[in-house]
Design a protein around this nucleic acid. Structure first.
Lengths: 131, 131
DNA sequence: CCAGGTGTTTAGACACTGTCTATTATTAGA
DNA sequence: TCTAATAATAGACAGTGTCTAAACACCTGG
């Protein structure tokens, strides 16, 4: 129980009830929630939490490398609890974002991009999820 | 002169002064402007143009495959006059988006992504542009 | 027990992106 | 010229994200 408290403490973040509610809403899942989705979910756990606290805490978690932001949805950032390198597949119909393990895809030719110092990259795929 | 009028007519779009101003602001460049940047630029050419017209026209141009939208910037869509398949490099410092020709990079392993029907994909790279 | 300081949360204001609507202007065609 | 369709406009609206000032919680030293 309450490993979220341990997690926060380990990162030097004071574990307040609001922050715990936020961590419980995002950590350890494979979803890619928006700030507003986190807000809604955290509110179920801690009804008085404010939007500002959600944004503040999410930024904190990104700083501490518990979460990463991804630009994959129109108009909003999504938060990704998977901070290891990986690729993304986006379902056209539902907009669902699915992680693709790093070693499933290989990108060749980067060494020929002269004049560009690559810090990071990912493959973004779009299509339909078969049932 | 005014090949933008020809372009619009060829797509069955009535070439009004406003639309011409918008096409002149985006077509044939290698930039990736946001709607607001297009608005600013089009306004210099046609001072009475409204934001709504810019959004309407950009959507029209996307429908007609003159432009494509890309989700590469936080909080806003960018419009890409390059409608051929290609990859993108984003400069960390300036946020500048640079096109990478399709055949410069090869992505291997897509055939092993069972259960996913891939319609489209691209590599998104981030880093620093060397001078 | 209290005072003061640090850190946290909160509501609400604000700016920006994008959509929509009702009105006005323009155009094409008879 | 008149009519109908098309286009453009201003402004209202909703959503995302940032910021600020005020309230609150918690700790430490006196």
């Amino acid at each position: 129980m309450k490993e979220s408290i341990t997690l926060l403490r380990r990162c030097g973040i004071q574990p307040t009830p609001q922050r715990v509610a936020i961590v419980d809403s995002v950590a350890g899942s494979t979803a890619h929630p928006t700030a507003d989705e986190v807000y809604a979910s955290a509110r179920r756990r801690c009804s008085t939490i404010s939007r500002a606290t959600v944004y503040n805490t999410l930024s904190l978690l990104v700083d501490r490398n518990i979460l990463r932001t991804q630009i994959l949805k129109e108009g909003t950032v999504v938060y990704d609890p998977n901070v290891a390198r990986h690729h993304h597949f986006i379902d056209d119909e539902s907009g669902t974002i699915i992680d693709i393990p790093w070693d499933k895809l290989v990108v060749k030719g980067k060494e020929n991009l002269h004049g560009l110092e690559i810090r990071d990259f990912q493959v973004v795929l779009r299509g339909r999820k078969k049932k």
